[in-house]
Design a protein around this nucleic acid. Structure first.
Lengths: 380, 380
DNA sequence: TTGGGGCTAGCAAACGCTTTCCAGATTTTT
DNA sequence: AAAAATCTGGAAAGCGTTTGCTAGCCCCAA
């Protein structure tokens, strides 16, 4: 009877079935409403929306005006269904409460959204079960690609994703397969700068608190440290390498272990900044001064690092760079006509940022080291 | 020729059109593959999957086995299309790099996933433009409900969402409309505890660094402070209320302002922990001791607070409670048969956590205050 | 043996959109 | 002016599900 022919918009259904368990919102305005209003077919609306050139400019104008008037928003689900592409990207991180990741997430999201993608975030919390369900969720939601930024990952996770021929991005290392891309972080450079910085100040007993050694990147950082020390002819006794957990708690525990040594190392490098914050805290508890008694160097350069007491000397791994590379690599995998579609590796630089948590080892140049920050006068 | 009758699975299409701009992944295994394998109709598979009782147990077994064998995962998009519900929740925060929010996000996500929902996260970064596009994205993705945890929100944003009759959850305050629920945070209690704690220690000159006063919650916190002070008969001079930004940078700037005062307040309360961290940093720079020279109290009790130097006395607002309330309130709005469907307000308690950044004001009981943490002996 | 009443499985429509195909309209060519 | 070529818009199929309806089956009573 009305213009709208075949459509029923489940009016009858809703009326018939008494009190459905889950209420259905009033149907949103669809492409048909626009077509009606603009007095064209839905095909024309679709073409206008998607900017296809063959549509008459006058009609296109009418369509756009109608869209404006009825407040039409294309239904992404329906689009995804027919196009086979959801325009969603998965981003898997290990622990969203580690301050490094929110920064990464934010950058990643900004870039993805700018390219018209949505981001589905998942954090594994290092649990296999969660990871499992994470993958399933991503697959069900039909994401176009997944960036696995857990800095080291369980192999079976990779397997599942690889099977589906998803575009994938890993950090540090991943299997060599056609639609897998890898972000190679140049740990060596930044860590070498850190070690050389400490050595130049006069440190010889430098300890390193690693991340959880299941993580590839944690191993990579430790190895970079060893190598850098070896280059300078410095030995690293086994007890100067302590395994941490990339958390503040881990940093505290590790530092407590290091305090038992005799002599206590004069400098400690950490596999990430959060660990370093834990170390600062442990030293505070035992009333050691940083950097006068012990120098501390972090890794990541999270925003917080510069606000620590004292501001943390750390190796910067730009999460801007990392996020940018991840998004671009994913797009390269998804969009066949992407300029860098063939590129398989993307490299991420690191560099030292010197702040105030590192100085000469205790005992050397005592006058200088001791007075560094106690010079100011209180003004009340 | 084959069993698969009507289906073409765009093999021909892919072959015909030369190099499509965006490659389409091989179609995932669908309900039809399962149906074929189990030698039943797709309707039966659907019913088996959804646990509808009328299906023959023998057939159901065959279906589940087939699902296992072919590795079938239902396509969420298609489901959403027909059911009208996407099983996605929107979560809007103001600034994901503020450490409070990742904790909130994590809790929220855990709970949502446990209930079978996916979470779409957006952070506004306090920009209207971003917020605008955020809303559009959420609408397009057809989320079932949105939790706006920005702690104070631009009115026009509300408007857009309200129009669509989305289930919505706000913090602190929101319009009184049928499908809008509000999480009422009891700022008064926690802040009163904080003020009384400081007053009991002997502080009379207590300053407060607010959040950005556009945010309703920032105003609420400030007012709670004023009220608590008034209750004790303490005056709050205008220059003891400084507007911050809920960031570390803001805390630094605000503290610098407070240091100009004569006399400098003996205690500073902050509208959130991040601001307090900035304050600690500012005081460190000017070589003031916390808490000997000045006591600092935060708000939120982020995980980091206990690892500050010194560990931060702060008002705890449990993000576990907050997330739990948000998810439950959303579900109450979405699922008509939810036990608390009618409930419109959910209250969130706050309470003081005393750590070591607060003590007696300088000048009183000097012996005690001064030696608090310098007692330990260095063990090397 | 046959009719009726439960059940259950399968068919087909619908969700909102994109895309292909084709017919009608318009323009160009001879 | 007629025929060919080009363009444009509409109709329809299909994406992977769910679900109302119907047909088939079995069983039991008449």
């Amino acid at each position: 009877m009305e213009k709208r022919k075949k459509r029923r918009r489940n009016v009858t259904a809703a009326a018939a079935s008494g009190a459905p368990a889950t209420r259905r919102r009033p149907a949103a305005v669809s492409i048909r409403d626009v077509a009606e209003r603009a007095r064209v077919s839905i095909a024309t609306v679709s073409r206008a929306v998607n900017g296809i050139a063959t549509v008459n400019p006058e009609l296109a104008r009418r369509v756009w005006q109608a869209i404006e008037e009825v407040g039409y928003l294309p239904n992404t689900q329906a689009r995804a269904l027919v196009s086979g592409r959801s325009r969603m990207l998965g981003l898997i991180v290990s622990e969203i409460t580690n301050p490094f990741f929110p920064e990464l997430v934010q950058e990643f999201e900004n870039l993805a959204v700018a390219q018209g993608y949505e981001v589905l975030i998942g954090s594994t919390s290092y649990e296999t079960l969660r990871t499992e369900s994470l993958i399933r969720r991503m697959l069900q939601r039909n994401v176009d690609g997944v960036a696995v930024m857990t800095f080291g990952i369980e192999e079976d996770l990779i397997q599942k994703l690889v099977e589906r021929e998803f575009p994938l991005v890993f950090v540090d290392a991943g299997p060599d397969l056609p639609n897998i891309r890898v972000l190679k972080v140049d740990y060596a450079e930044g860590i070498r700068q850190g070690v050389q910085h400490l050595a130049a100040l006069g440190h010889r007993h430098i300890a390193f608190i690693t991340g959880p050694l299941r993580l590839r990147s944690a191993v990579a950082r430790r190895d970079a440290f060893r190598k850098s020390m070896a280059e300078l002819g410095l030995v690293v006794p086994a007890d100067h390498l302590v395994e941490g957990t990339h958390t503040m708690e881990g940093g505290i525990v590790a530092m407590e272990k290091l305090s038992q040594l005799d002599p206590v190392p004069t400098a400690v490098m950490c596999s990430n900044d959060v660990t370093a914050i834990g170390v600062l805290h442990a030293l505070y508890r035992t009333t050691h001064e940083v950097p006068a008694d012990i120098s501390v160097v972090g890794f990541d350069d999270i925003h917080l690092a510069q606000f620590m007491l004292p501001p943390l000397t750390t190796v910067q791994m730009s999460c801007k760079d990392l996020a940018a590379a991840a998004v671009e690599a994913l797009r390269a995998g998804i969009e066949a006509d992407h300029p860098k579609a063939a590129r398989k590796e993307w490299s991420i630089p690191t560099r030292l940022v010197v702040r105030q948590s590192s100085t000469f080892p205790r005992g050397s140049l005592p006058a200088l080291a001791g007075t560094a920050r106690r010079g100011g006068a209180k003004n009340f």
